[in-house]
């Protein structure tokens, strides 16, 4: 027990670990809340698509020596609206179109990189995450984004439920359902851009999908699923970081694996008849 304690003490003596913890916990929380709606509306592909678009933009920014976040936030926001339109429109195969965009963005990123900087450590960090990459200004940005997401989410909670549960009914009773979809997509875009550098473009979407899917195995009201997703996501991130530090494994991948473990535990509990 004391060795775990020592590990934690050592962990928190590093500035970069504290920065990563702050950014990661906030991103995990926000991603989990948004994830409940995205998963239930079958929009979870959007998260995946956005992270790939984010990677493409980062790669371009890197090779052109542009500021990565300043470029990727607007580009990913635009992509969010585009992907949302594609998902809403079921007539053209929305999911196929998203897969197309996301792999194209990835391909653009990879080609641009190989033509310019080459596959160096920076690039690898963008794909699979690096906690060392976070600066103090990243911390401020993530706190800002998290505040916006949390405030908008809490204030719009009732309508987000209504639109998630039944969009047609929501519209018939006077709600602007499409603006709530846009709100969710925009918030997701911001969370992905902020979280991508730490978790990695390939892994960030799991922060959106896992907690919601896991909570739904056991919890059966919307509010409980939302709360459990938030708590679980934060918990898994923390454990993942500790594990990553203790075993010297990559942070992003460790967090994903802890999420996977939680999913298995909840699935087993749900199978065994635990429903709350």
């Amino acid at each position: 027990m004391s060795s775990l304690f020592d590990l934690l003490r050592e962990l928190f003596s590093y500035g970069f670990v504290i920065r990563a913890m702050i950014v990661g916990l906030l991103v995990s929380l926000c991603a989990a809340l948004l994830g409940v709606t995205l998963v239930l509306k079958r929009y979870s592909m959007i998260g995946d698509g956005l992270s790939h678009v984010g990677f493409g933009t980062l790669a371009v920014a890197l090779s052109l020596n542009l500021a990565p976040l300043q470029l990727s936030i607007p580009v990913v926001l635009v992509a969010a609206f585009l992907l949302l339109r594609l998902s809403e429109n079921s007539r053209i195969k929305g999911d196929a179109a998203i897969a197309l965009i996301s792999s194209s963005a990835l391909a653009i990123g990879v080609v641009v990189i190989s033509l310019t900087t080459g596959m160096n450590a920076d690039v690898c960090n963008y794909m699979f995450g690096a906690i060392l990459a976070l600066s103090v200004s990243d911390v401020y940005l993530s706190v800002g984004v998290a505040l916006v997401v949390l405030i908008m989410y809490v204030l719009s909670y009732n309508r987000i439920f209504a639109v998630t549960f039944d969009e047609n009914f929501a519209r018939a009773t006077g709600m602007e359902a499409s603006s709530y979809n846009m709100l969710i997509a925009a918030l997701t875009a911001m969370v992905i851009v902020v979280g991508m550098r730490m978790m990695g473009a390939m892994l960030i979407s799991s922060l959106i999908i896992f907690p919601a899917l896991t909570s739904m195995r056991v919890f059966s009201s919307f509010k409980r699923v939302v709360i459990c997703s938030g708590v679980l996501s934060v918990f898994c991130f923390f454990i993942g970081m500790v594990v990553s530090f203790g075993f010297s494994t990559p942070a992003g991948a460790s967090v994903v694996l802890i999420n996977l473990a939680a999913f298995c535990v909840f699935s087993a509990a749900g199978r065994a008849g635990l429903k709350v």
Partner: peptide, 26 residues
């Protein structure tokens, strides 16, 4: 919505959501 996690109360009260402003509580 076959598999949607929501209590009956949550579903029914969502009928009131459209009557309030965008940021209102019940």
């Amino acid at each position: 919505q076959q598999d949607f996690p929501a209590s009956v109360h949550e579903v029914v009260i969502s009928g009131r959501a459209g009557r309030h402003g965008p940021f209102a509580f019940y």
